[in-house]
Design a protein around this nucleic acid. Sequence first.
DNA 1: TTCCTGACGCTTG
DNA 2: CCAAGCGCCAGGA
Length: 111
Amino acid sequence: MADKGSFFEDVYDVVRLIPEGRVTSYGAIAHYLGAVKSARMVGWAMNAAHGLDDVPAHRVVNRKGMLSGKAHFDPPEKMQQALEEEGVKVKDDAIQDFTTVFWDPSEELSV
DNA sequence: TTCCTGACGCTTG
DNA sequence: CCAAGCGCCAGGA
């Protein structure tokens, strides 16, 4: 968060702070960054995070809890697998108990 | 420099 | 209630 070279770095930082077994939505991250209307930018940032192994993109889903970006992973199935490994139940490319495992940066990071 | 596309989200029909 | 369209910001060609 200190060095904000680009909007992406901010996103990466927040995603990296996502605790294990928890997930968040693009909109939540965008909201935390102050770009509520730019949820798409968050997703875009994740696209650039492709080469970053420090960014657990598999913990980021859309507001419905669906693994929308699953198709963008190296092995698409790895996203669901990684989530289940952390204790997150996934069914039909959708996170179960999404509201329970949901992690809001604005709440946990207390702005 | 201009046009198009894109891991989303909300409002309206 | 379900489905479709529009809005937004930024990067790449």
